[in-house]
Design a protein around this nucleic acid. Structure first.
Length: 204
DNA sequence: GTCGGGATCCTCT
DNA sequence: GAGGATCCCGACA
């Protein structure tokens, strides 16, 4: 992956239509896009390098599999919104709601290669954490970017959190998702996507 | 109201 | 590789 060092280039935020497609497609297309959170204590952002697609109600691993609830209601809304939830009572996982239309699909952001606000991320994660692990793994992404349940339901087109178009085409590898052993036939489906040879990917 | 489980991560062995 | 941390959510009574 090649990209100029130093200050990240500014790219236009993506339009609603861009998010309006199945999670499998969106999970691929999000790789290489910049994810940015302009928090009150500073801006942290970087390139998305690892994602997982969670399909509609038929996907037993997806939170939408058991129907609409107060927690997962955002998934049942329009695409381009954030779905944030707490797992294991500790970690906030960050999803982008996909389409098509209001089909309850979403893409989990599993790893980001930070290129902005590294010192802020380190302050949140701890001084001993190596750079490549600052936002590697879904729980770490939430921690590094300062995302929690207060961000659930935010519009990526109109909030301090946004996604910017990518300016290159990464080489993408796909494989089974992580931590969904309970999902029957869906466990082995290759719905996890990552950029080949990127050191920030959580499980290589 | 109660209870069991979970889209994780880190430390220790 | 194993196990603990930690608490919200959803199912059920």
């Amino acid at each position: 992956m090649t990209r100029a060092a130093g200050a990240p280039a500014s790219a236009p935020a993506l339009a609603r239509d861009w998010f309006d497609r199945p999670a499998t497609t969106l999970a691929r297309e999000l790789l290489g896009c910049r994810f940015v959170h302009a928090a009150p204590d500073g801006t942290v952002g970087g390139l998305i390098v690892e994602t997982e697609a969670y399909r509609g109600p038929e996907d037993r691993a997806a939170h939408s599999a058991r129907g609409r609830t107060p927690r997962n209601a955002v998934m049942f809304g329009p695409p381009g919104f954030m779905y944030v939830y707490l797992v294991y009572g500790l970690h906030h996982c960050l999803n982008v709601v996909a389409g098509p239309g209001e089909k309850p699909e979403a893409v989990l952001i599993r790893a980001i290669a930070l290129d902005e606000g590294m010192e802020i991320a380190r302050a949140r994660r701890g001084p001993a954490v190596p750079e490549r692990r600052l936002a590697s793994g879904p729980g770490n992404v939430g921690a590094a970017l300062g995302i929690d349940r207060r961000h659930n339901g935010l519009d990526l087109l109109d909030s301090p959190v946004r996604v910017e178009a990518r300016d290159f085409s990464p080489r993408v590898i796909r494989g089974p998702r992580v931590g969904v052993d309970y999902a029957g036939a869906w466990t082995a489906r290759p719905l996890r996507f990552w950029i080949a040879d990127d050191p920030h990917v959580s499980r290589r």
